[in-house]
């Protein structure tokens, strides 16, 4: 019978928390940067300019139809051949941003297509500038529509970020793997690591629902 012993895990709990903090920072930054990429991608795709349309299409299809782990390997091990060298943590952030950007582009495009033509034409008719229309009449209601999809994509991103340990980035999973290699207490180490991921996911879900309620709290016609 296996004897459970959590002491080595809790002795090294600070290293796990350090890894968790890195995962939060990296995922958070990847989300903000990726959101910017998504908005640019979605607007570019709907701009009607053929070249931009094609570039966005290639980017989205390339990223959404290849495994995330292979993308990370490519950025970390492949790009140095072209003289582009990133540290493991930079490569991890870059890969997550690029990945989130591709999925986000499609999500935001779905939101934009939910805005009726008439609403945009009405805004143009009362003399709003192009940027004002984009910001207040298109983006804000579009983001409101797809907000739940965006937040669940973020949770996917954060959980998926566990594979960055493969290129020696120092995230929560890497901290767990290192601790496991020192203690061999796999059950205890991964149970606690799983618990930390679960707490992070739930905390982010709650924070997002709070943000959603304050940012998009205006009445809409039903």
């Amino acid at each position: 019978m296996y004897q459970f012993d959590f002491t080595p895990v809790f002795q090294a709990f600070d290293t796990l928390l350090l890894g968790a903090w890195f995962t939060i920072q990296m995922s958070g930054m990847a989300m903000l940067l990726g959101l910017a990429v998504s908005i640019l991608g979605a607007v570019g795709k709907d701009s009607g300019i053929k070249v931009i349309n094609l570039i966005v299409d290639i980017y989205v299809e390339l990223i959404r139809n290849t495994p995330f782990l292979v993308q990370i390997y490519f950025f970390f091990f492949g790009l140095p051949a072209l003289g582009i060298r990133m540290s493991p943590n930079e490569a991890a952030l870059f890969a997550l941003t690029v990945n989130f950007g591709a999925y986000g582009t499609e999500i935001i495009r779905a939101g934009i297509s939910a805005i009726s033509r008439g609403q945009i034409e009405a805004a143009q008719a009362i003399g709003l500038s192009w940027l004002q229309v984009l910001r207040y009449v298109v983006m804000k209601p579009a983001l409101r529509v797809v907000y739940p999809a965006l937040t669940s994509q973020f949770i996917f991103l954060m959980l998926g970020s566990s594979v960055v340990s493969a290129i020696s980035a120092t995230d929560l999973t890497a901290a767990g793997n290192d601790l496991n290699s020192l203690t061999f207490a796999s059950f205890e180490v991964y149970l606690v690591t799983t618990g930390i991921y679960l707490v992070m996911s739930i905390a982010f879900s709650m924070a997002f629902s709070l943000i959603g309620r304050t940012c998009f709290a205006y009445p809409v016609e039903r």
Binding site: F77, G78, P80, A81, A166, I167, S168, A174, N177, D178
Partner: peptide, 14 residues
Amino acid sequence: RFDDDVSAVQALLS
């Protein structure tokens, strides 16, 4: 720290 020998060698070569 890399997850396998191949990745560690790859890190050296690249």
